[in-house]
Design a protein around this nucleic acid. Structure first.
Lengths: 109, 109
DNA sequence: AATTATTATCGTAATATTGCAATATTAATT
DNA sequence: AATTAATATTGCAATATTACGATAATAATT
């Protein structure tokens, strides 16, 4: 036990879960918000912005990247991490869809 | 270690993370979609819908409830679990906000 | 009051996550 | 080629999550 049974669910469900899970940590939310705030792509100073050790942040970035939430491209000796708008759009549409469908119901009001 | 350092982040960041984390599991995504699909509030047959044991589903429901994604009210000897539209709306707005801010940038294109 | 149906809790094993120090890697600079 | 700067990887300890069998709790039904 302990492992998530992904094979019981659809690809779409697994993908939504994967993305949501990646955002399901305050440090990663903070990283997302920092990437959103910053104008330039030089994102190397996330470490200074967030009170966690460099390896920890590197790990969080990796998880966001694996989930497709951000993308990173090498920019000299630093790396440019940026939010992947397609992933955010997917999530936004997903929740907006739920909202729309809920409007038509009066459940547990 | 192993514990998330929530105290380093804002309440809003922690709340978004908490909600996203709750949705960050395919079974909980499936539960959400089932609650959305079903018209009536009699939600006791989630167990038949999702290929996981009853205690596991009860646990997932609890997590969704703790995160404020769903709410449950006693309905006889069964319990009516329903999606909390306010939480979904919060998430939708959050991601729609990110989308809007990303439109103005040409990062890593 | 016994039975049945529905949901929750407990206990526990397997696995995953979080966080960091130490170290490695990579690329620019001197 | 040595140094510096930026990021990634490794290894590991602490904690959390996932899943389920067994059992308890609750409320309707007989």
């Amino acid at each position: 036990m302990g492992a998530t049974k992904t094979d019981h669910f659809t690809d779409k469900q697994n993908n939504i879960a994967l993305m949501a899970k990646a955002i399901g940590h305050p440090a990663r939310v903070a990283i997302l918000e920092y990437l959103m705030k910053v104008d330039t792509c030089i994102c190397g100073d996330i470490v200074n912005e967030i009170p966690l050790a460099q390896p920890t942040i590197s790990q969080h970035l990796k998880e966001l990247k694996n989930a497709g939430i951000i993308k990173g491209s090498v920019e000299g000796n630093s790396i440019c991490y940026c939010i992947d708008d397609a992933a955010i759009a997917k999530l936004q549409k997903y929740f907006s869809n739920i909202s729309l469908k809920l409007d038509k119901k009066n459940c547990c009001s």
